[in-house]
Every structure is written in structure tokens, then in C-alpha cells.
């Protein structure tokens, strides 16, 4: 994982709640190898449907937003299936942070493990941010993980919280598994105690 860098980027307003991982990454791309550019599959069906309609194109296909690295959405972003591919698609497209009032639990956990920062801000702060972004297409937002702040286009500063360990891993490009493996003796000791109790192992052939 690459270390997370401070972001100063166009922010993309996606004023929808309950954006589920089936929308973010349609299921028929789940068998694609990780080496693929999953950015090509991001919101694939939604984008195709809007291209084929009389409505304006999907926000990612509108000019000022194409290279945005920060996504702003409404509540319960990333709900639904546990597919990590949804995070890969956002990441490969170039996103490094998603701001929303709440996230699907599994999505948020997957995101942190792949260099995508899920930022929870209060509903009112997100609503205000979305309003600015829609009024001023292409407005920039700053996300600084070190200070745990989001700076909105007007200069308003929002603080956010993040697990200190996840922050440490993100900032240094570290992997949780390395840390766990360094603690393996603890697992060995637990396992010895635990498996000595037949109730925990009764089935184990």
C-alpha cells in the first residue's frame, strides 16, 4: 500500500444516500483479476444508463469532476455486499477519500485497508459541503490526514476522527497483517489454551 498523502483536489458531489456496493461495482466484474483497472468498472451501469437517457451524464462523466480524488456522498455510503472490489474501483479511478455522514461497516473497513480514507462528517456539514460543490462545480477540498481535517471550499475546517492505528498504517503505507504476524506468539498462546477445552474443539475430527 502506498502512503496516504494530503489531498487538495476537486471534490465530486454524489448527492445520494444508500449508495450500495452493487452500484459502485456491478457484480459481473467480481471475477476480474485485481491487476485489471477497476476504475473502468466504477458505477458502470449507472453511467451507462445516464449516457443513454436525456438526463445530464453521471457526475463522474461531467467535465470539472473527471479527475476528482475526493467523493462526497450522503448517508450509508457503501452499504450492502462486502465486495472489496468496490473500494478497488474507487481507488483505481483515483479517489483517495470519501466523505459521508455514515458508511456501511464492511465498506469502511475495506477502504482503510486499501488506501481509501472514509471520512465521517456530521449530516449538516456534508449537506453544506454538497451545496457548495453543486453551486461551484470544480471547487476544491483539502483533506489532511495528519491533522485529521477537511477544509471546505469556503475555508470552513471540519475535524474528523480516525482509528489511530489505521491512521498510522495509512500514513506509512503499512499493512495490518505485518503487525499481527509480529504478535503471533499471542495467537499461539491463546490457541493452546483455547484448544485444550474440548467444547471449543469437539468437532475437529
Amino acid at each position: 500500500m502506498k502512503p496516504f498523502e494530503a489531498l487538495d483536489s476537486v471534490a465530486v458531489p454524489l448527492a445520494q444516500s444508500n449508495v450500495d456496493t452493487d452500484q459502485i461495482l456491478p457484480a459481473r466484474y467480481l471475477q476480474k483479476p485485481r491487476a485489471d483497472d477497476f476504475g473502468a468498472y466504477l458505477f458502470r451501469d449507472l453511467r451507462a444508463r445516464m449516457r443513454g437517457s436525456n438526463e445530464p451524464p453521471f457526475v463522474l462523466d461531467q467535465d470539472p469532476y473527471r479527475n476528482g480524488r475526493i467523493l462526497v456522498a450522503q448517508r450509508n455510503f457503501g452499504c450492502g455486499s462486502s465486495r472489496e472490489h468496490a473500494v478497488w474501483a474507487l481507488y483505481d479511478h483515483g479517489f483517495r477519500a470519501v466523505i459521508a455522514p455514515s458508511f456501511g461497516d464492511i465498506f469502511a473497513s475495506n477502504a482503510l485497508k486499501n488506501g481509501l480514507l472514509p471520512i465521517v462528517l456530521p449530516e449538516a456539514a456534508v449537506a453544506a459541503l454538497l451545496k457548495i460543490l453543486r453551486a461551484t462545480p470544480g471547487a476544491r477540498v483539502i483533506v489532511d490526514l495528519a491533522t485529521q481535517t477537511v477544509v471546505a471550499p469556503g475555508g470552513t475546517v471540519h475535524e474528523f476522527s480516525v482509528d489511530p492505528f489505521a491512521k498510522h498504517c495509512l500514513m506509512n503505507g503499512l499493512d495490518e497483517l505485518d503487525y499481527t504476524l509480529s504478535q503471533v506468539q499471542q495467537i499461539v498462546d491463546f490457541e493452546r489454551r483455547y484448544n485444550a477445552d474440548s467444547v471449543n474443539t469437539g468437532r475437529r475430527r
Partner: peptide, 22 residues
């Protein structure tokens, strides 16, 4: 509970998983 692919590999490797108490 359900987990993502990175967590699946973590559980395969360690038979353990980090969680914040819900």
C-alpha cells in the same frame, strides 16, 4: 459477520481478526 478480501487473507494467515467492539 461478513468481511472483505483483505480480512479473509488475514484470517487465513492468522485465524484471527482485528475488530473494534460494536
Amino acid at each position: 459477520f461478513g468481511i472483505g478480501a483483505t480480512e479473509v487473507s488475514h484470517v487465513l494467515a492468522t485465524q484471527a481478526l482485528w475488530q473494534r467492539k460494536p
